[in-house]
């Protein structure tokens, strides 16, 4: 073993093999990029409201309590399918109203229950957030999550 696998051979295998796998990964990533744009997220247009909502989501650090498509903190409920859970996936107006009502009633102050902060959002931002969550929900996520509980 030690005669066949010398240090310089081991080094060459490391560099050569890594380049090989980087190349495969690059090709698959390119294909995946196109698949996302043309197929999996094509169910609803990526409007200005959706983009605004995404930035609202980011600038208030929602991901550090909630999960979105299963990624994030595990402190608060999954939101990738929240619009399905509310039955408002195809109803932007009701989606906005429920979200607005929910967020304005926070923090609940209930003793012993996890608290969501109050966020000062304009109506446009709140509508954007609702649209963003509807947009995320229509993404083809290979059937995940297993049920509405998220």
């Amino acid at each position: 073993m030690s005669e066949i696998l010398t240090k310089s051979r081991a080094r060459n295998i490391f560099y050569g093999g890594s380049l090989f796998f980087v190349a495969i990964f690059g090709v698959l990533s390119f294909h995946s990029h196109r698949y996302v744009v043309n197929t999996s997220t094509a169910g609803m247009p990526l409007t200005e409201a959706v983009v605004l909502g995404k930035h609202v989501w980011e600038r208030h650090s929602c991901i550090n309590c909630h999960t979105l498509h299963g990624e994030g903190a595990y402190f608060a409920p999954e939101l990738g399918n929240v619009m399905s859970r509310w039955g408002t996936l195809d109803d932007p107006e009701t989606a906005y109203e429920i979200l607005d009502g929910w967020m304005k009633s926070q923090p609940s102050g209930v003793e012993g229950r996890r608290q969501m902060p109050y966020f000062e959002l304009t109506e446009e931002e709140m509508r954007g957030l609702a649209e963003f969550l509807r947009w995320a929900d229509q993404t083809d996520t290979q059937g995940w999550p297993p049920n509405d509980a998220g």
């Binding site: 890594s18 796998f21 980087v22 495969i24 990964f25 698959l28 995946s32 698949y35 996302v36 999996s40 997220t41 498509h69 299963g70 990624e71 993404t139 083809d140 996520t141 290979q142 995940w144 999550p145």
Partner: peptide
């Protein structure tokens, strides 16, 4: 490198 795929299951890929 290709193990990255285990994060790509359910995010729309």
């Amino acid at each position: 490198i290709l193990g990255t795929g285990h994060h790509f299951y359910w995010i729309g890929l």
